[in-house]
Design a protein around this nucleic acid. Structure first.
Lengths: 242, 242
DNA sequence: TTGACTTATATGTCTAGACATATAATCGTA
DNA sequence: TACGATTATATGTCTAGACATATAAGTCAA
């Protein structure tokens, strides 16, 4: 029964409708399972055409905030705790975003025909050429992470001639390879001798491990393992894309 | 210049337009930065009204696959490696999904007026009542994770009388608290005496830590710390909602 | 009570227009 | 050459209709 709807505000009408509904869901006023007013009711309430409220509701459905069922109506969805948005920034961007100076150091780079271990790591069957890169990222001259990467040259031939001595391979790939899919696996290990030395931490200290496997339409691009000192690094994942 | 567009297929037209464009982006045929045909060109190609192609493009924009710029056109976006969807399942669901038997054991439960440490952990200023719960999850009778949780009773009064001796608090909250927001922080530690005993691992073994902080519209609900054996547990995050 | 059939209805998709608005491009001027 | 004003244009939003379709709800018979 609220009025104050006919005076046009700054945001567009469908956005206002969407925001109104979103607010009621987020505050808990309309709990999961609650039926949202029918389109024709919203049309009457906001004094607009059905296409306008339809656009608002469609976007809420696309964002998984509501569920639409023919003939039944639209309903608030139960929160899906099991998915969260994990921000895994490009390391250079991550460090500079923290206001710290970024340092990069190429430790080793080898080009070879893929070994059995390489093939398994990349998930490919054929034995093609690969580049193996190992490097270290630092923040304010303190080791931040060590990276151990394999690039499949049959998918990214230009990586054969790319110069990784100044640019980290992650940044290079981001700029040279089109849209990709990726899978991240996160685990924890304790530092062995080599890792401890590279990260300048004690042997046996905890490390956070990110294994990222990247492909594009069933074609492997790269596999990378990142090791962070576990007590100083944090990965933050936030539910609902905040 | 391809025809075969006037014979109606099973999917609706706008979905077909969206799928056509998505495919070209995913295969790399249209790389990041590439300008997608103008709406009026797509209108001509598909022989439909502008609203139809607009709906297709709007959804692609909402999914961050393309970027739309007034007067300039629509462009393929650069892949955003820095965000991935992390599936953090309810532990019971996670274990049963693996086909293993789920075991739950309440270790301790205390109700108290929030201490300074509790208040800091929950991010609240006022000293209200809280419930502190400690429990253990197991899979096939092997320790899977230990949980240490704080619930703010001023936000969730019904938790005061809830019985957590058989139902894990995470599952209970999922069913009793409306839509929430959450932030996850992931780190690594080495097991101390108490943790090692609870998880049946060696002292000094790596552990993956998830700290989850949950709230609803600026109101704190719960803070939980989950400890997993780091060498046996893996968190999988997949880019682009696979 | 149960199952099969019918009907009402809310959403799903689409059209052929309209005006608004941000901005890339162009043109003109200092 | 550099800067400011103008213009053209692609997207952004919206309307008042239309028909399609899945399905909840009601109806009727076995």
């Amino acid at each position: 029964m609220s009025l104050s709807t006919e005076t046009a505000d700054k945001p567009t009408l469908y956005k206002r409708i969407r925001a109104d509904i979103e607010k009621r869901i987020l505050t808990g006023e309309w709990p999961p399972g609650h039926r949202i007013p029918f389109e024709h009711e919203l049309v009457a309430r906001y004094g607009c055409s059905r296409m306008t409220v339809n656009k608002a509701l469609s976007e809420l459905a696309q964002a998984d905030l509501i569920e639409r069922r023919r003939r039944a109506g639209s309903f608030v969805r139960r929160p899906q705790h099991q998915s969260a948005v994990l921000k895994i920034a490009d390391i250079r961007a991550e460090i500079t975003a923290l206001g710290r100076s970024y340092g990069y150091e190429l430790i080793g780079r080898k080009q070879r025909t893929a070994t059995a271990a390489d093939r398994e790591r990349l998930g490919v069957k054929k034995a093609g050429k690969v580049v193996a890169i190992s490097c270290r990222h630092s923040a304010d001259n303190v080791p931040f992470a060590v990276e151990d990467r394999l690039i499949d040259l049959s998918s990214v031939p230009s990586a054969a001639t790319a110069d990784f001595s100044n640019e980290p391979p992650g940044s290079w790939l981001l700029h040279h390879v089109p849209w990709t899919e990726a899978e991240h696996t996160i685990s924890a290990i304790v530092a062995d001798d080599r890792t401890a030395e590279a990260l300048d931490i004690a042997v046996g200290a905890p490390c956070l491990v990110i294994d990222r496997y990247t492909w594009r339409s069933a074609r492997t691009i790269t596999a990378v393992r990142l090791l962070y000192p576990g007590d100083s690094h944090r990965l933050v994942a936030r539910f609902k894309g905040g």
